[in-house]
Amino acid sequence: MRQLLAVYRQQLKTALAEQLQYRAALIIWLIEVALGPAVSVSVWSTVARNEGGAVNGYSSAGFAAYFIATMLVNYATQTWVFWEFSRRVREGEFSPLLLRPIHPIHADLADNLAYKILMLPVITLVTLILFFAFHASIALTLANVLAFLPALVLAFALRFILEWTLALLAFWLTQVNVINQLYVVVVLFLSGQLVPLTLLPTPVQVASAWLPFQWMVAFPAELLVHRLSPPALLTGLLAQLAWLLVGLALFSLTWRLGIRRYTAVGG
């Protein structure tokens, strides 16, 4: 365990050094990350104004708080590995990873964390700008922050495992980008990043509750801005745990099959 930590420390240092080379990309990322919430807040605030100040209990300020929260949770849980993996397999960059005496998922996890550390100032800045530009209002209490943290960690674990599993499809398919794109759209909708889930049609809401996506973003975000009731909190945490277990099972199965295939056809 201590040695694994040493690997993480070194991997983090390396990833930080590597990503610091691309400071210019930070500006682009700042705009990309801020634009989505800014557009959503603008649209829904306009609707709220038209409809006498509120839609389904969301005021303009409420929408602003909600979309800033989903942006933060999305930042904390986002991964890119499913875009990366097909290139890795295609260009023979996967074989060296397989020859290391450590599972490749560790390197990706460390990379992801390093990126997040690096982006922390950017996301803080974006949050502040959006918060004041859109007059968001939020009432934080110690209790809902305390409830938010475990939900966020679980959301990250869940999303990381599921997206790494999705990435493994590259072992079987050469054109995974269309699937990835479809996945991104589904996540955008069903994780509550485009629209608060309660505004979606009822059948979609029901389906969404049984799918993993809303537990990856919407649940922690709502926890932060709405102070969910204790039963809703409990349901959410259990759903996250259940999906995490499913994700781990899927991951280990897909990994085993994928490696078997990879080592049969040649890297």
Binding site: Q10, K13, T14, E18
Partner: peptide, 27 residues
């Protein structure tokens, strides 16, 4: 196994840092 270029070393950082990483990975 040494197979051509670009497999152990990380492109954008000094060589020694890639070495340090391998030190951790191989314990």
């Amino acid at each position: 196994l040494v197979m051509g270029q670009r497999q152990q070393l990380i492109w954008d950082i000094p060589v020694i840092d890639s070495f340090e990483l391998n030190r951790a990975i191989y314990r």
